[in-house]
Design a protein around this nucleic acid. Structure first.
Lengths: 257, 257
DNA sequence: CGTAACTTTGATTAGTATCAAAAATGGTGG
DNA sequence: CCACCATTTTTGATACTAATCAAAGTTACG
């Protein structure tokens, strides 16, 4: 339990990845003054529960978390995925109550921040603040795109779409042929994301592999024919609101292909 | 094309409905200085298109707009509904590009605001600013709840859920027995919201009427047995982040029943 | 009053859910 | 390092919900 002052360099470097800018000295100093704790969260542990007071935010140094809601039938529908180097729970800065669970899927390392303090920080330093709010709002874009995916596309396209998104969001991976990443979700969980039964997810993955569009060994996915995958998925990356850096990397990969 | 100064009283009263607070004199003055135009928008006209620069925000004085995306198959999936006395396009304050269309469903009257100016206003007046951002973030909650609805529930529940939400969001209507409202969507459009074919929506509505859960004449819906409708829909209002006023009204209606 | 849009109903089909059971994988302790 | 367990993945067979097709009835609107 230490203030971020304890490790401002770590903090700055982690945040820079996401905020895509260099912190000014005064911003860094103010950030260091936030009461933040570096915290390990075991797999299957909750960061927040639905109904909690909106006090917690976190930056994910390592691991994967999911946002989910439980239906009366008892299914845990996944409404968001929080990956390494992203924030979780940012909306708690401004909302009055937590309306969904956030749970660690794998063992996680977080920088936990107090939502009210972070909000004050955001209000005093609008440059970074705007980037944080943009991050929070990107969650809307993603949820809305998932809505299209789940509501309007058939099974193959839904799964393909998820594969495309994960490829772009998982750090260090561009959506280019040969890009590969470790699937952070089981097939069951992928089904909970795209609104399909786990058996249906399995069948789609099988067929994508058979047709040579992706390769899979253990739970590492490699995109072989990205063009075809994207087309099949009706995928367009705009909704992810990626920074210029990622977009450029992607365009470059495209041009090279 | 007039600044809001032209009609600060109207502006304040409209906003107060949503922001649930009284504007301080300095806030009102600053708000009046924003370049804002009262604008009529014909039915079937676009406020913004996907890909536009993120310049436009609007407060809806009257009418209904929808946010939508077009799939390659050509369906217009509806990813959000913007009702009277709500904002549309608030996320443009912080995001770099518009990733979906916003279109007037009916003739609308808007107070149109410049996103960048509004952002500055938000940064200078954090009290109102926070309320505006909370409003923008509520869109995430709604999209995520729709995600559960579309991905995990069967046709009956999906339609019932939408009816519950509209009842609460449409101004002046509490979710109590006997509350009625004009459906702002055709059955086709309701289908585009909940991921069903218009024929399926029609059948659900028919059955809800037959079973005496709702009444419908023309396109006015009256909730007869709210308890049953909510249960059937697996509906809980938390995700709407309603202000105390609405919540109280609802609780009162409940207690009275 | 006439036309276009929307709603309603019936018949058929397609796409996934569901059920069941075997095979593979990952993690644990002996 | 291996054996064992729980979890996940894979495959096949069947059931069912909602999509689709088609056409008549109704409403809204110029």
């Amino acid at each position: 339990m230490a203030d971020l002052d304890a490790d401002p360099a770590l903090c700055a470097s982690a945040l820079m990845k996401r905020l895509k800018r260099r912190l000014r000295a005064d911003e860094l100093a103010a950030f260091g003054r936030l009461h933040a704790t570096r915290r390990a969260l075991e797999a299957d542990t909750y960061l927040v529960h639905e109904g909690d007071p909106p006090t917690r935010c976190a930056y994910i140094l390592d691991g994967t978390l999911i946002e989910s809601k439980v239906t009366r039938a008892g299914d845990h529908r996944i409404i968001g995925v929080c990956l390494k180097n992203e924030f979780a729970g940012l909306s708690n800065m401004f909302l009055d109550a937590v309306d969904h669970d956030i749970r660690a899927l794998t063992a996680c390392v977080l920088i936990e921040l107090n939502a009210a303090q972070l909000r004050e920080f955001v209000e005093h330093y609008p440059d970074i603040g705007g980037a944080l709010i943009a991050d929070a709002l990107t969650a809307t874009s993603i949820a809305q795109d998932w809505l299209v995916n789940v509501g309007a596309r058939e099974a193959r396209a839904r799964v393909a779409h998820l594969l495309c998104e994960l490829s772009l969001r998982i750090e260090g991976t561009s959506l280019s042929d040969g890009g590969s990443y470790r699937l952070p979700l089981t097939q069951q969980q992928m089904g909970d994301v795209v609104g399909l039964h786990r058996v249906a997810v399995n069948r789609v993955l099988r067929s994508l592999v058979e047709e040579g569009i992706v390769r899979q060994s253990k739970n590492v996915i490699t995109l072989i024919d990205t063009r075809r995958l994207e087309e099949l998925a009706d995928f367009s990356a705009r909704y992810l609101h990626l920074g210029r850096s990622e977009r450029d990397r992607r365009a470059t990969a495209r041009a090279a292909a």
